[in-house]
């Protein structure tokens, strides 16, 4: 295990990217920070810039306007990074699959930029905070 991966697994800082979500997944992510779940205990922290982040939390279908910005955000994130794709929309565009403004799913867009990207999926509409925490733990113990 390289020291980069070793340091990534300790207290991952996350940047939250909404690419056309309905707010539910975003609220559940913020819910993870609040007293009932409080993942800040484990050193996970929402940061304000992708350049500070170890992981991206991507929610939403990936609209045509948004995927351009998503690619740019992924390029700016310091590597190695883990991409967490949260929610049914982000995992496979879900109920919006036949929308004219949908360019997702998100994993396809990320793989266009970097075919070797580390991607973890947390399905659910919206996934409960417990599911998000469990997904993050599983992904970090797998790499």
């Amino acid at each position: 295990m390289s020291w980069k991966i070793w340091s990534l697994k300790k207290s991952p800082w996350v940047f939250h990217v909404n690419v056309g979500a309905c707010n539910n997944c975003d609220i559940e992510i913020v819910n993870c920070l609040t007293p009932k779940f409080d993942i800040e205990r484990f050193g996970m922290k929402l940061v304000g810039s992708p350049r500070h982040a170890d992981a991206l939390l991507v929610t939403g279908v990936g609209t045509r306007q948004a995927v351009v910005r998503l690619r740019e955000v992924y390029r700016q994130t310091s590597k190695p990074c883990v991409v967490f794709i949260i929610g049914a929309c982000a995992c496979g565009t879900g109920i919006f699959h036949n929308g004219y403004h949908v360019a997702g799913p998100v994993d396809k867009v990320i793989k266009e930029v970097d075919p070797n990207a580390i991607i973890a999926y947390v399905p659910g509409c919206p996934p409960k905070p417990e599911a998000i925490i469990s997904g993050v733990v599983k992904a970090l113990s797998a790499i």
Binding site: N18, G60, A66, N98, G99, Y100, V102
Partner: peptide, 14 residues
Amino acid sequence: ISYNHRGIEKISET
């Protein structure tokens, strides 16, 4: 705006 536009009115017709 329109970063979040998903075309719901049109999907609804299908």
